[in-house]
Amino acid sequence: MKNTLIHLTSSPYSSIACKEGLDLALVLATFEQKVDLCLSDAALSLLTKHQQPEPEQGKNLHKLLDGLEFYDIENVFIESSSLAPDPATQWPGITSLDSAAWSELFSSYQQVFRF
């Protein structure tokens, strides 16, 4: 079994890349592969609470986050500089890493896929 990091960088609302990245993560986990997630750039908006997108804006992917633990996806990393100024507005299941740990993150997996 290999350990995999899925790095989401795309906005959940500008394309379906973010959704298809999450889909891959869920399938890997379903096949009992070790998978972690990390988010940066526009994908960080996935973490914002109380999203209510209309159908034409896309699916509410934020809702998937609470289900990750049922797939044994336990780690969702962001860089500490990406923490929201008000933590109450951000999904609480994230682990923040300082910039050194964030840089090392990408070399600690056998494979990294970006979406």
Partner: peptide
Amino acid sequence: EGLGTFVELMNSTQKIIQFR
């Protein structure tokens, strides 16, 4: 094919290269 086929490829080859 489903993503399961990708998982099988992933586990039976040494390296995966993504082109995006």
